[in-house]
Nucleic acid binder design. Structure first.
Length: 227
DNA sequence: AAGTTACT
DNA sequence: GTAC
């Protein structure tokens, strides 16, 4: 009763309600699952650490000759790389010709859970990409179109410092919507949303107990038309 | 061209 | 914004 006097002081933060939702639909076939990976985050980070020990992060160069601010490495049967010749998937690491680290079972089960929750069948899961964001780094708006498979969903897992996810449409000029991606959030986009433009805004200077000033992102893809 | 872009 |  007495607290009612001060109700006008209450502040509703943007996105507060959304962050509590079980899932947020961005478009048909595109969802954010807030906190879906939260309880497994320490094990996911340990598995990521194990991958980086085998295949260290690198700053790839775009076909235009620019160094990407986000550092990357891959795992699974196919790894994504970029250089002056273009974007492509390879079975081996460009630095030493060795196979990419194996896809951990922990990742497979999380991806199966996420795709099921989004209403898609289990993907064969041929490729994993691990991205490291430091303060100020970004991933400009782009489409994932280096894969033969244009329908199987992409699964993205956010760990560490929160980032702003940019979500557009099928054309580069489509209006952008912005979503906060926090530690443990999972995004799935497939079917009609598979080719949507997306990106990550420059990472704010912030800190997370498990990752320091960094954000780690895991993404999973099907590469070939049939597995 | 997935750019801490480089211009007009 | 638009261009490479």
């Amino acid at each position: 009763m007495t607290g009612d006097l001060f109700d006008f002081l209450k502040v509703t933060e943007p996105g507060q309600d959304e962050s509590r939702a079980e899932r947020i639909q961005l478009d048909p076939g595109a969802f954010i699952f807030p906190g879906m990976a939260l309880s497994r985050a320490p094990e996911l980070l340990e598995a990521a650490r194990h991958i980086v020990r085998q295949a260290p992060f690198r700053h790839l160069v775009t076909p235009g000759g620019h160094r990407m601010s986000v550092a990357m490495t891959s795992f699974g049967d196919y790894g994504w790389i970029s250089d002056r010749s273009g974007y492509r998937y390879t079975h081996v690491r460009p630095d030493n010709g060795q196979p990419w680290p194996v896809m951990p079972d922990l990742f497979r089960s999380l991806v199966e859970e996420a795709t099921r929750a989004a209403g898609f069948p289990h993907p064969p899961l041929q490729s994993g990409l691990l991205n490291l964001y430091r303060p100020g780094t970004r991933l400009s708006l782009h489409q994932d179109k280096d894969e033969e498979d244009a329908e199987t969903p992409i699964v993205s897992v956010s760990l560490g410092v929160a980032a702003t996810f940019l979500w557009g449409g099928l054309d580069r000029a489509s209006p952008l919507r912005r979503f906060r991606l926090s530690h443990g959030d999972v995004v799935v986009w497939g079917g009609p949303s598979r080719m949507m433009f997306h990106g990550i805004a420059p990472l704010a200077v912030s800190s997370h107990p498990l990752t320091g000033e960094c954000r780690l992102n895991l993404t999973f893809r099907q590469i070939t038309r049939r597995s």
